[in-house]
Design a protein around this nucleic acid. Structure first.
Lengths: 355, 355
DNA sequence: CTGTTAGCGCATTCAT
DNA sequence: ATGAATGCGCTAACAG
């Protein structure tokens, strides 16, 4: 590294390094004249303080860690966008870690963060995660932490989520009104709140429309893309009566779509699919896919905001700061309710026409 | 931070910290017995070395920086995926910075990396970037650097790109064969090689099909989404004859699509659009959109691989290591060549039917 | 084989 | 208003 350091800068100025250090931080003990002389020279030599020396000294890293299940997905990439925005505003750096929905990877990654590498953590749990001791340890170490989207209530932190119950309800109700009677549900993870609550919305909608709940129509979707695809194909083969699919995450909607296509099943004629996406892309998707859109950017933004509030005030992140944002159902013209059922008493669906 | 450090671990063992340090790194000078005793105790106390102390001492950060124009985009999110994969394999951490296509932000971010914060850099230039002195400085500081996708030839590093000329040619030829005669081109950036080469492919295709090149049909798309949308709408109003659009990045294809929709222009009946996307989503897009797909994951993967080769061998990244990967044209049934022109002599288009 | 010492770059005592 | 000395946690050169 051929960068100039504090000592070199000091000797160039004929000052001690401590004076220069103080001058750079605008200490009141240093005369204005020296302060300016120092700053001028610093600019001239393009002095850049070594961040890690500072971290070591002050126990402040100006860095946050973001743990994600995946990133090539509308939701998480928009979320990162929101996170990075807030981080930059606060002068923070962002370390990113992908778990690929594996609890093992999540544990490994958590270890990286136990040694003071970051001042705070934003985490969205892996679908496969059942045991959260690794994150509990981090939290108990005093690292501020905020969970978003795929959260666990067992972990006592603030969370930023979407109205998962409502979105599950809306998605299912939409399919019911469009005439579906045998609606399959693809769950991301039964252990995550996102999985439970969307599932609850699904069964509540069935109940309101007087359709019996059938456990054999609920499919586990916490595998790799290839695994899920296989599983869905196998499932559709055994359940020819299925006429609707509610996929609880974008990735599963894509897999469903692929499965149907490969089996010559018409969408939306034979099977209607509701998935998740973001606003922008929803309008571009094949008319067959109705989507629930989440305010992904806002979720990332808010989660980061809560985290930084805790970091800068040196206070713990309280569960009471949790936020629940609203999702929106975007219906494509081709899947508008037609020969469906009548409205139930409980009206939760709000329709919005796209395309 | 209530984590245990080396000294504490050492005193618990009745050893000096240097012995413990060496034991942890499996130094041959330490007896096997002590080594195991140390490791056992380390595990017991959950000792995690402070990463920044090590960085300071060894001048090795085990961290790379990734500078991107944006992330909520299929291409870049897949690329990150590829990058993170390689980084994890090499035991590296990934710092991420978004420039939002602004040269100013790119400069700011570059400053962050001048002080030994990272061992290497992967960068995809902002569309607005004309002056690259900030990156040249980084390179001259000896930080290994690899550019990918949106690269500048002026910067003397290895690059990993797609066959931009060929993809521009293929996209345009497809529109020509589908019957379009007035094809607009939305450029990301005239200063970036990606912009130039796709543009060259565009005009070469026009030439091969004996369609005169019309500069007024080339639109600058290096603004915000809102700006681009306005610009496209304005453009379409003034050029009613336009019957095809070749958008040189995904984001511009979306904006074109939105512009047409808002103006009641039919897609693909009135105007056909070719954009960029990744394989997985391409099949899900509205039939109106034909796409060029880039191997985004592979690009990220390869760029990272080249970077780590340089980092671990402590050698400079040579331009001769540059890679050019292949894109693929994915044609939707509804925009298949119909009343189009005859084949030209130069055949570059390879068709692949989707959906 | 193990311990002592020094220093990475910086900020902060404590002196003057 | 400035400088000298100390230590953040770790590793490596130097002893023994």
């Amino acid at each position: 590294m051929s960068t100039v350091n504090l000592k070199q800068l000091a000797s160039r100025l004929g000052l001690s390094s401590s004076t220069v250090s103080r001058a750079m931080r605008d200490s009141y003990e240093i005369s204005l004249a020296t302060r300016e002389r120092v700053k001028h020279m610093a600019r001239q030599l393009d002095y850049q303080p070594n961040p890690y020396a500072g971290s070591l000294r002050n126990n402040v890293t100006k860095t946050i860690g973001v743990i994600l299940p995946e990133v090539d997905n509308h939701f998480f990439s928009s979320a990162i966008n929101g996170i990075e925005e807030v981080a930059q505003q606060n002068g923070y750096h962002v370390l990113i870690y992908l778990t690929h929905d594996s609890e093992e990877q999540e544990k490994t990654v958590s270890k990286f963060l136990t040694s003071g590498r970051v001042d705070g953590i934003l985490v969205s749990l892996a679908g496969g995660t059942r045991n959260i001791s690794h994150l509990e340890k981090l939290k108990n170490l005093g690292v501020p932490m905020v969970q978003f989207d795929r959260v666990s209530r067992k972990l006592n932190t603030a969370t930023v989520t979407t109205d998962d119950y409502a979105s599950g309800y809306k998605a299912t109700a939409h399919l019911l009104r469009a005439g579906c009677r045998h609606i399959a549900h693809l769950q991301v993870s039964a252990s995550l709140s996102i999985g439970c609550r969307r599932m609850q919305g699904y069964s509540a909608a069935l109940h309101d429309y007087h359709i019996p709940y059938d456990a054999s129509l609920v499919l586990n979707g916490s595998g790799t893309n290839a695994e899920n695809l296989m599983r869905i194909r196998h499932f559709l083969m055994q359940h020819p009566k299925v006429d609707g699919i509610f996929a609880s995450v974008e990735r599963l909607a894509l897999s469903s779509y692929q499965a149907c296509q490969s089996m010559g099943i018409g969408i939306p004629d034979d099977i209607k699919i509701v998935g998740f996406s973001n606003m922008e892309t929803a309008a571009l998707l094949a008319p067959a896919l109705t989507t629930i859109t989440q305010p992904a950017h806002a979720i990332g933004h808010e989660a980061a905001r809560i985290l930084f509030q805790a970091i800068t005030k040196n206070k713990p992140v309280l569960p009471s700061q949790s936020l629940e944002l609203k999702s929106e159902l975007v219906v494509r013209a081709s899947t508008m309710p037609g020969g469906g059922l009548a409205q139930p008493k409980t009206i939760m669906a709000d329709y919005r026409l796209a395309g």
